[in-house]
């Protein structure tokens, strides 16, 4: 078995043509997922037991099932019902990209809300008490104390989740989406050379991951700028 370097060079630009789709899946489902996560977090912290339970059940369901199964249920399962095909949602569910974004959003939302909760719980009680002593209202404490500190605490774990979301986008290739993985699989099907093509693909994902890591690293530095020691 020989390693065909030419094939790597040929397939790389083809796979990069799918970069836009991978990026779109990551950015759209990442941001929608973050919004969902914040809603779930607020439900859990609301102090209303029914909202808390609802959020807990949701998180349990979506963390308790494989993302691939969720994608299949949404893509292949839902259209089995005539009502779904006749509904207004069909314009989204008809498109594989819509299904993939929906599945990735619902999944990442569940994980991220737990990460954010970890951040909120990590905020020092003393600081909140200090806030109360200064006469800050609950809303002010949430905005000026809890949110910035929780964000800083949750950021490392959150960046981890963004990276794992990036890799989950590869599953979109199972529902006909021509993202980087989908294109790679088609090239493999044409050339029968899985080794070269998938290694190249792996390298592209690694570079992508590195970029995400660096971006979050910079953001983390920025958020913790007050705690850094001046030399």
């Amino acid at each position: 078995m020989s390693f065909d370097l030419n094939l790597v060079l040929e397939s790389l630009p083809q796979m990069l043509a799918g970069f836009g789709i991978t990026l779109k899946l990551l950015l759209v489902s990442g941001s929608l997922g973050l919004v969902l996560a914040i809603v779930l977090l607020l439900m859990r912290m609301s102090g209303k037991f029914y909202l808390d339970w609802l959020a807990q059940i949701y998180i349990y369901v979506f963390r308790g099932t494989p993302i691939l199964v969720q994608i299949f249920i949404i893509y292949y399962g839902l259209p089995q019902f005539e009502a779904v095909r006749d509904s207004v949602f069909w314009s989204i569910l008809r498109e594989p990209t819509g299904c993939a974004i929906l599945a990735l959003t619902l999944n990442t939302g569940a994980y991220v809300s737990e990460i954010l909760r970890g951040g909120v719980l990590g905020v020092d009680k003393g600081l909140l008490e200090a806030g109360s002593a200064l006469g800050m209202s609950a809303r002010h404490k949430l905005i000026y104390i809890t949110t910035p500190l929780a964000t800083r605490l949750a950021l490392p774990a959150y960046s981890n989740d963004v990276i794992s979301l990036l890799k989950s986008t590869a599953l979109a290739s199972t529902i006909t989406i021509a993202d980087m993985t989908g294109i790679a699989r088609t090239i493999v099907a044409d050339t029968y050379a899985p080794y070269e093509v998938f290694i190249s693909l792996a390298i592209v994902y690694m570079i992508f991951t590195l970029a995400i890591q660096k971006l979050f690293g910079l953001f983390e530095r920025y958020l913790s700028r007050h705690t850094r020691r001046e030399d």
């Binding site: 292949y76 259209p79 089995q80 008809r94 594989p96 199972t174 006909t176 989908g182 088609t186």
Partner: peptide, 18 residues
């Protein structure tokens, strides 16, 4: 062209109208 992993999925999406 939309490419599928197996023939069952091709039939399913024809029925689903995708």
């Amino acid at each position: 062209v939309v490419l599928y992993d197996n023939s069952e999925s091709v039939y399913l999406d024809l029925q689903n109208g995708r």
